[in-house]
């Protein structure tokens, strides 16, 4: 079943002044359980596409369906609430709330979902164990390495039980060992829990781990290969 469907998405930045055609008609379908990389040269529109799929930005033309919902029908707060329940995000950096510990960061999103304290505790513990941070639960982001912070971000993204997880260059700030560890972990979650991952990257080693690679060039899908 498709969790993400895009129909002829176009995105033009600054349509009035100096228009930038970031996306020129993107048709895409991503099914449950995929482990998909979006690649392409700098400026090809990867971030723009992920932001539109994630409901952080709106397309100039075209439609986006997430888990069957046309997200253009959602208003400001409605969109935020929709993201909370359906989409997990992992950003390049600044993923975490600096004043909260790893455990509290994971709990926070479940608090937004009004989950009980008991459920939050239990799931935060499980997830942090799963991402290999059982001894770092009470550390604040500042006290964690970049790789560890990204693991917390993964745990946080999983905590809300989203339909899929979007990650825009999640390894851009990591060394090669942390990159490999993070990818191992994401791949394992994908294999064992069936969690859908869509991530953008420049890193060939990351691209090699993907099972489907979509290449964007100049705002268009140039290649779409499944391995």
């Amino acid at each position: 079943m498709a969790v993400i469907i895009t129909e002829q998405i176009e995105k033009i930045y600054n349509p009035d002044k100096v228009p930038v055609h970031a996306l020129r008609g993107v048709d895409l379908e991503i099914d449950e359980g995929e482990f998909t990389a979006i690649v392409g040269p700098s400026g090809s529109g990867k971030t723009t596409l992920l932001n539109i799929i994630g409901g952080l930005d709106t397309p100039t033309k075209g439609k986006v369906y997430i888990a069957g919902t046309d997200i253009s029908t959602l208003s400001g707060n409605g969109m935020i609430n929709f993201r909370k329940d359906h989409i997990g995000f992992i950003f390049q950096s600044y993923n975490l709330i600096p004043v909260l510990t790893a455990r509290e960061n994971v709990e926070f999103i479940m608090m937004l979902q009004k989950k009980s304290k008991k459920e939050r505790d239990q799931r935060a513990n499980e997830l942090l164990d799963a991402v290999g941070l059982h001894d770092k639960k009470n550390k604040r982001p500042m006290e964690l390495s970049g790789g560890q912070q990204q693991r917390v971000a993964v745990a946080r993204a999983l905590a809300s039980k989203p339909s899929f997880i979007l990650a825009d260059e999640p390894t851009a700030n990591l060394d090669s060992q942390s990159t490999a560890d993070l990818l191992d972990m994401m791949a394992e979650l994908n294999r064992e829990e069936g969690m859908t991952f869509v991530f953008s990257t420049h890193d060939q080693r990351v691209i090699d781990r993907a099972r489907r690679v979509i290449t964007l060039i100049d705002g268009k899908i140039a290649k779409d290969e499944v391995r």
């Binding site: 935020i80 993201r83 600044y94 999103i109 937004l112 946080r156």
Partner: peptide, 16 residues
């Protein structure tokens, strides 16, 4: 700014 953006991205609505 970024942190607040992140919070709204992951689902903290405007009221909160």
């Amino acid at each position: 700014t970024r942190e607040l953006g992140m919070l709204m991205a992951i689902g903290m609505n405007r009221i909160r």
